[in-house]
């Protein structure tokens, strides 16, 4: 049973304007980790907006968990390239934000605040932010802010995590650390992940399936299953099969750019 399903989905931002994505069909299994790669402006973020119901499709159907998406999905976690942490809240308070909005946490927050805060602290600890709970975002490095942002996306235990170029602004070392962090979080308590990225190594390292999209209007050109054994260690990125996947995807992207 597919958890997320796109059936011939097209979207134009304004009626009559050209499609941002065209005739996209894909299906994502529950707890599958997929990655979307493609040139800038090809509609990757647009796919995210369709999955989360922030935009209705102009044509076609989007299903999540067997039901057609009609309006913003509740209980999805999202993180972007900018951490978007609220500067007047501490790290802990930032991570607690979804608990103030999502049911059933929202209505029980008053009674169970201590318990929920304990969950938030535990999550922060898992991503290596123990001791930074009471710091403000501007007191954290870029990588730490991104860790906190991903905690905020996961604290309410969403079944679907949307990551839109979350590591794009980080240096190479920090980026690899965060790959491992996401891998561990996902491996320990699986959920469905859609990861948008420019970085093919990142896509191959993390994902079960990589989709390559064409230039605008975005279509799915290639679907590639990544059959590297899990759990994957950073070492895997230096192996022959890994390089072969990256190389193959790289060639598809190359064709897009030439066309």
């Amino acid at each position: 049973m597919d958890f997320v399903r796109f059936e011939n989905v097209s979207l134009a931002y304004q009626p009559g304007s050209p499609f941002a994505i065209e005739d996209v069909s894909l299906s994502i299994r529950e707890n599958e980790f997929i990655s979307l790669v493609g040139p800038s402006g090809c509609g990757k973020s647009t796919v995210m907006k369709l999955v989360t119901g922030l935009k209705p499709p102009s044509k076609g159907y989007v299903y999540v968990d067997g039901r057609e998406v009609g309006g913003p999905q509740k209980c999805v976690g999202m993180a972007f390239q900018a951490s978007n942490l609220l500067p007047w809240r501490t790290t802990l308070q930032n991570v607690m934000l979804p608990m103030e909005i999502v049911e059933p946490y929202r209505s029980t927050l008053r009674a169970k605040r201590a318990e929920y805060e304990e969950q938030a602290r535990a999550l922060l600890k898992r991503v290596g932010l123990a001791g930074f709970e009471n710091k403000f975002p501007w007191e954290l490095s870029g990588g730490m802010q991104q860790r906190a942002s991903i905690c905020r996306a996961l604290i309410h235990k969403p079944r679907l995590l949307m990551l839109d170029e979350p590591f794009g602004a980080l240096d190479a070392f920090t980026r690899e650390e965060l790959w491992c962090m996401v891998r561990d979080l996902w491996q320990e308590e699986p959920f469905t992940v859609v990861l948008v990225t420019h970085d093919l190594r990142e896509a191959v390292f993390l994902a079960d399936t990589v989709y390559v999209m064409s230039k605008r209007p975005g279509r799915i050109l290639v679907k590639r299953e990544i059959d590297l054994p899990r759990p994957r260690d950073l070492e895997v990125t230096y192996t022959e099969p890994f390089a072969a996947y990256v190389h193959e995807l790289r060639e598809h992207i190359g064709h897009i750019r030439e066309s």
Binding site: K49, T52, L54, P72, Q73, M78, H156
Partner: peptide, 12 residues
Amino acid sequence: EPELEDVLRSLG
């Protein structure tokens, strides 16, 4: 910021 709005709206 539009992204922050997306984060919040996708939480319902």
